[in-house]
Design a protein around this nucleic acid. Sequence first.
RNA 1: GCCCGGAUGGCGGAACUGGUAGACGCAAGGGACUUAAAAUCCCUCGGCAGUAAUGCUGUGCCGGUUCGAUUCCGGCUCCGGGCACCA
Length: 823
Amino acid sequence: MDQKYNPLDIEQKWQHHWEEAKPFTVTEDPDQKKYYLLEMFPYPSGRIHMGHVRNYSIGDVIGRFKRMRGFNVLHPMGWDAFGMPAENAAIQNKSHPAKWTYENIDYMRGQLKKMGFSYDWNRELATCNVDYYRWEQKLFLQMFEKGLAYKKTSFVNWCPKCETVLANEQVEDGCCWRCDSEVKQKELDQWFFRITDYADELLEWTNRLPGWPERVLVMQRNWIGKSFGCEIDFPVEGTSEAIKVFTTRQDTVYGATFMSLAPEHPLALALTVTENKDAVDAFIDRVKKTDRIKRTAEDFEKEGVFTGSYCINPLTKARMPIFLANFVLMEYGTGAVMAVPTHDQRDFEFAKKYELPLKVVIQPVGETLDPAAMGEAFTDAGILVNSAIFDGMRSDAAKEAIADFLEKEGIGKKTVNFRLRDWGISRQRYWGNPIPIVYCDTCGVVPVPDQDLPVQLPMDVEFTGEGGSPLAKLDSFISCTCPRCNQPARRETDTMDTFVQSSWYFLRYCCPDAQDTPLDRKRVDYWMSVDQYIGGIEHAVLHLLYARFFTKVLRDLGYISCDEPFTNLLTQGMVIKDGAKMSKSKGNVVDPNALIERYGADTARLFSLFAAPPEKDLDWSDQGVDGSFRFLNRLWKLVHERMEVFSNTRVLKVSELTPEERLLRFAVHKAIKKVTEDIEDRFHFNTAIAAVMELLNVLQGPELKSPQYGAVMREALDSMVLLLAPFVPHITEELWQRMGHNVPLSKTPWPEYDRDAIVADEMLVVVQVNGKLRSKMTVPVDTDEETVKSAALADDKVLSFMEGKQVRKVIYVPGKLVNIVVA
RNA sequence: GCCCGGAUGGCGGAACUGGUAGACGCAAGGGACUUAAAAUCCCUCGGCAGUAAUGCUGUGCCGGUUCGAUUCCGGCUCCGGGCACCA
């Protein structure tokens, strides 16, 4: 037998075995506890990177562990395969995105297999495959029917480099999430998903996801941005019209001295008097040319223009001049703001600039504000003044009272507003799922009927890189007949955002071969929801919000029963090297292939799990990798060395062990307990691995000559190999087999620790004087409190620190320490 | 500005409910083996003083609670992340 640890051979051997025996293939079994484990599926960009290695290694530990614990573990893998890089590569290489994508998938699948991840490959799916996206088209049409998918003209985020629209969630710091180009605003007719219909439920459930990291939930809550307030009507002087405003500060309504409208407000032009028309037109024109992102920056100068019209404050009856203001957004609230310059900083700045009246209606407790002397708005809560019957009330009480009063008078009503906008899903790109819609001059927007699905993405397309989407130039695709009137019609040429595909892939994994339906309810209901989801934090308000939305929509469409897709979420940290995220431009990339060739997959897995707990950033260290490799070599050597000792050993007789043997066994069972708890309760794989390293250090001690040493050692090495199996599956399978086991590790249960073995005969008691460590004593475990205390008081070292002082108190923490308080 | 995290040796990190700070690993130094090197094995390894035993000190800073604080409370500093002209 090979005595040298040769990772490449044994990894190949066991990967081949898994390929043949398929121990990770699962079906629904109502008699077994199910466990759905999922890592975020990769985009097939070419080759896997360290982030993938880390993400999937974390997942694989959990998968293999749960399997050994007797769970029916669903652990699928697939490809988030539509998207722009494929199209860009096609332009560059004069190739086809499909070719590029499928080649990448083949290569990366090979890489994942070389890492030894325990996936059920029978369920593999690629979202660019028509067998996947056809069902998404069906779901789109059902959403269209229910009004959850709709088309509207609006200003949208436009990435000039990607030549496509981006959802709000895909704009980061005013730049494209993918290519970092500055995002512009463009007015386009686009498809949207009505995620705002689910805003309340999405928010509500953030309080019912205890298995999610709090910061992800907070980010989602902020993103949804629910605020409570009032809608109030301000009648326009001399007309029967009223301007509706939204405010969260109805307690300041008596202080509203003017009105600010968004330049896009539908009443803007109608309210403009003839003398002001030129100025207003010029202002609107200027604002429209200003970039959206800049316009909404906090430091952007507040500017406006007077329309010449007035409205009436419904409570004070004061005349309020109506302005257009550049900082007022049409898409939040009603596009109109009642301006309270004393209690809102923006209104304050605006009022100062255009010399508008200031009226204080909230006084801070114990202070009196003088409007003339104010340098900034007072925006905190306080006591109402100058507010008629509400004078003297506190802000929060006044909010309620004024809201009730407005409702009673029919001037306004309580309402809520969300920051969340509908999800814009149209993309002006080729490599995506075609939106199954036809435009007919007679019938308008017509959904493609069920029997005509799927709308196949045509393959005979040229990629020039010029002039936008290739689909928009492909007559054979565009030209069609209207399904309603059979007249010539045009096909929609936009494709769906790739985040649509990733919003339900985890459901399709449950029934990847379902033929007549996107989702086979019986199977989906068996597996869902995902018990553990693992991926990067960067998807906190993207994928993770969209997937929650889709799950709720599909529930309401009757496809599934669960309310939420992911019960537990683990967000793993980034992989860092030399103080920066690994990237080609920084030149600090570690290639998994090179690592596997040099050390084997087990070492790569072990290091990425050992160097940091999963949720923290992982600092890559080449020497650290050496250390992990050394450990596996020591393990290999020790098992082979001691194998002979136990080869002809009889059964372990626990009651007849020598003290040395008992100590060895103590170490083994302590390790089993520690590793089990670290994996199960907290996913602290780094400390679990450290515990096994400690055990190895103990077992490496000198061979004993005592009669049961062989039996103890057999139990020890068996246990150690089992404990390491989820982390380093290849070497452990090999050692397991070499130790004479016929059943492979992948079918062997997790070890249980023996409670009796971890009860020590003696205990170490630390002795403190005034909280400082002064001595240690070893006493039999059953020693009673009084005996321990008096032994501590009689200790030589302790006595020297008590000299000339009186004992005030003696504290005993059973089995741990004695603290003697002296003065 | 608001909301979340975080700060522990030369480095990655450990200490789970307040009870021996620094597990495990890396690096470094010394030694064994070797003609030599690699590999392997052994020893040392927070700081200061001391040959040593040992003592003092030490978990970002200041203070508090406690017999006892890396852990709890109050106030700061710095770093990372999210949100932000959202009415």
